[in-house]
Amino acid sequence: MAKITYIENNKEEHVVEVPNGNTVMEGAVQNNIPGIDADCGGAMACATCHIYVDEKWYDKIKKKEDGEEDMIDMAFEPNKFSRLSCQITVSDDLDGLIVRMPSKQS
């Protein structure tokens, strides 16, 4: 279980507890947190669950696998802290994680 803070582009914060094994994307979608579309359902086939990981957390998260960076090329306003939230699996280590959503996904 990890407590995750999702911050919308308008600065609104949502703090939820996400069970281990779920993805950061699922944590948002299942709790009806706006700002993450996840059109493809978590298959790394779109870039609509794009988030910016908080600077302090970025290096603590498991590195990107092949294909994620290519998909982020197609995301809206990517930067060096960009990740696809469907590719981050929650574990106890991520307790306290902070992610921010872009102003739009598509």
């Binding site: 059109d39 779109c46 870039a47 609509t48 090329d73 197609m74 598509s106």
Partner: peptide, 9 residues
Amino acid sequence: LGFFGLIMQ
């Protein structure tokens, strides 16, 4: 010219 791929709308 922008080639950022296609998005689904």
